Simulated scan of single mutants.
Amino acid sequence: MKSRQHADRGVARRQAMAEHLMRHGSASVSELAEVFHVSVMTVHRDLDELELQGMVRKYRGGASAQASSVFESNIAYRLTAQIAEKEAIARHVVGLIEPGSSVMIDDSTTALAVARHLAEVAPLTVVTNFLEAIKLLAPVPGIRLMALGGEYHPTHDSFLGVGCVDAVEAMNTDTVIVSTSAISDRHAFHQEQEIVLVKRAMVAAGTRCVLAVDHTKLDRVALHRVAPLEKFDVIVVDAQAPAETVQRLRERRYNVEVAG
């Protein structure tokens, strides 16, 4: 009985620790030990478990829920980041969609923001691998919903893998909307191979492809290249995007639109 109670306390503490990291972005081991009234060794064990679950990444002396060039943030953290910017981008992107057309959206939280507005341009056929978007759109009148299968990944709340790639490659939609973790002057990037493979397939599956990225993704790189920027017909950024970055991308003849 005592061992069960001890295990339950450990689960609750790790959940609270994950929430603390998502709320603050990062924290040191000593800070977490003080906040949760446990030893440094206990914090290390808890962080090891959270890292295995894909919730956080450890670094020397602490842990972070934020993305790095090789680590994508957990979906729970991404849902709380740059909310206003993603909303502005979503409103702009929806203005690019024609009623009666087909739209494919990826498993990004920016695309989820777009999904919340798709009823405004219904009727639409919407294709996605993002479970949160599927649940959101399933009851919406005027939305014909097509769910992409594959292996479910709880860290991203989406379906990935060979099954998903095959399903994407069997389709062609009027518009594809994707977001990536980073873009440079030439390429869009993401940290994880399985997500990269799905995004690449999606980019190839659209008559028109929209890249939607908030300002925190600009002038950055990550481990894997998703696609050259010329593969995207439109790149939509938020108003906080540095003017010099927008100008530089436009000088390279990319179609960059700034969401107001």
Rank of each mutant, 00 (worst) to 15 (best):
L79Q: 15
L118F: 08
A84F: 03
I75F: 10
N74Q: 14
A67R: 11
L79A: 14
V198I: 11
H187P: 00
E120M: 05
P99V: 10
V94N: 11
V203M: 01
A84V: 09
H153N: 08
G150V: 01
E194H: 11
I75Y: 11
M146I: 04
P139M: 12
E169D: 06
E169Y: 01
F189H: 01
E192L: 02
C164T: 08
I105W: 08
P141Q: 07
E151T: 12
V114N: 10
A170M: 13
A88C: 06
E151L: 06
I134T: 12
Q82W: 01
R116W: 08
G161Q: 06
Q66E: 15
K135S: 13
E85L: 00
A119P: 00
D157Q: 15
A113Y: 03
V93G: 06
L197Q: 10
I143P: 07
F71E: 10
R200H: 03
A138I: 10
S184G: 08
A204M: 12
Q191T: 14
H153R: 15
K199H: 07
A111V: 12
E72F: 10
D174N: 00
V93T: 11
D166C: 09
I83P: 07
S102A: 07
L136P: 09
A182C: 06
E192Y: 04
L160V: 05
N74D: 15
P139L: 13
T155N: 07
Q66F: 05
G161E: 01
Y152H: 14
T110I: 10
S102H: 01
L112I: 10
A133E: 08
A81H: 15
E132G: 10
C164K: 02
S69I: 06
E120P: 00
S179V: 04
E87Y: 03
L124M: 08
Q193A: 12
E98C: 04
T110Q: 12
V140H: 07
R78P: 09
V121C: 02
G149W: 00
E72N: 13
A147F: 04
V178S: 05
A84P: 05
A65G: 14
R200A: 01
